[in-house]
């Protein structure tokens, strides 16, 4: 890391002489920058995916873990009594922070997306819902179920575990895949820079042997190549990151009821994360070119 930091002034100030000893490579230089830009662009989106999936998994497991629902479906006339009994039980149960029966208006609002606004709620045997906020630690669910069954036979306690677990697992798997994709993008960048550097080293074999014979050290020769490829990768990755971030910014948002896809993007400090892509690309290029140069030079006298 220290060595990596020490190359930054060298890259910025530039060693014009070491640079000049290797002839300019013309239009192939552009290809390295272009590939780095494309990889950075992909990395921005993968990063957005990883962060969004992570956010989703965290939200689902945190919010849903603390809420539960009690559903009371009792015969006409007993509904109100059973609801009161359920609330009494819940309020005396350790590990329950609060319990509140939803009003008719709230229940209607919940059902509205499915049945339309003109639902005659009074005429239908709609179960009453009780919203439960659990404390930390939560209640003893098995004990609670037994007490509820005794006091209010029509009440069913649902802590959402059944549908929460697979969702959280899916989001976590998605995040893992995104992280894997970022690793692959990094490795592909390293491979691509290595190939480009190898081609450049081969094309300049005469230059290298002349330099070696007039007493140039491996470090001097390698520097000319390393600086070149690091700068190309840095510039390309900066451009790719910028374009990628603008594209993410311009993604249409579905507003508050954001589904998973429209939640793809960066939030708050997340916007600083993609800024690491360009330095990472430069570091990868630095390392890959250096390794390729030293491997080639070791084959010469």
């Amino acid at each position: 890391m220290k060595r990596l930091l020490s190359i930054i002034p060298m890259l910025l100030s530039g060693d014009g002489k070491a640079d000049r000893v290797v002839p300019p490579s013309g239009h192939t230089a552009w290809l390295t920058s272009f590939s780095a830009a494309a990889m950075a662009f992909l990395a921005v989106f993968t990063l957005a995916l990883a962060l969004a999936a992570g956010r989703l998994a965290d939200r689902w497991s945190a919010e849903l873990a603390r809420t539960a629902t009690v559903r009371i479906s009792a015969p006409e006339g007993q509904q109100a009594a059973q609801t009161r009994a359920v609330l009494r039980v819940l309020r005396t149960t350790p590990g329950i922070r609060s319990a509140r029966a939803l009003t008719d208006a709230e229940q209607r609002k919940l059902l509205e997306p499915w049945f339309g606004p003109d639902l005659p709620l009074d005429a239908l045997p709609i179960p009453r819902l009780v919203e439960v906020i659990e404390g930390n630690p939560g209640p003893d669910v098995a004990g609670l179920r037994m007490r509820l069954a005794a006091e209010a036979p029509g009440a069913v306690f649902d802590d959402h575990t059944r549908w929460r677990a697979p969702l959280v697992r899916a989001a976590q798997r998605l995040r893992l895949l995104a992280v894997l994709a970022i690793a692959l993008i990094t490795l592909a960048t390293a491979a691509m820079i290595t190939l480009a550097a190898k081609a450049s080293l081969a094309a300049n074999a005469t230059v290298i042997s002349v330099l070696r014979l007039v007493g140039a050290t491996d470090a001097y020769i390698a520097r000319a190549f390393v600086r070149r490829f690091t700068l190309r990768a840095l510039v390309g990755a900066l451009l790719g990151t910028a374009v990628g971030m603008v594209a993410v910014l311009l993604l249409p948002s579905a507003g508050r009821e954001a589904s998973f896809l429209s939640g793809l993007g960066f939030q708050g400090v997340d916007w600083f994360v993609p800024l690491a892509i360009a330095p990472l690309a430069a570091a990868v290029a630095w390392w890959a070119t250096r390794a390729a140069a030293h491997r080639t030079l070791r084959g010469l006298t």
Binding site: R20, V21, P24, T206, V210, L211, L213, G215, T217
Partner: peptide, 25 residues
């Protein structure tokens, strides 16, 4: 070592039969 070879070559001037140069300089 390779760096010692480089250092030693700075103390030895060589004129090759087929003189090679950096053609862009």
């Amino acid at each position: 070592t390779r760096d010692r070879v480089a250092a030693a070559r700075r103390r030895i001037g060589v004129v090759h039969q087929d003189c090679q140069f950096l053609d862009h300089l």
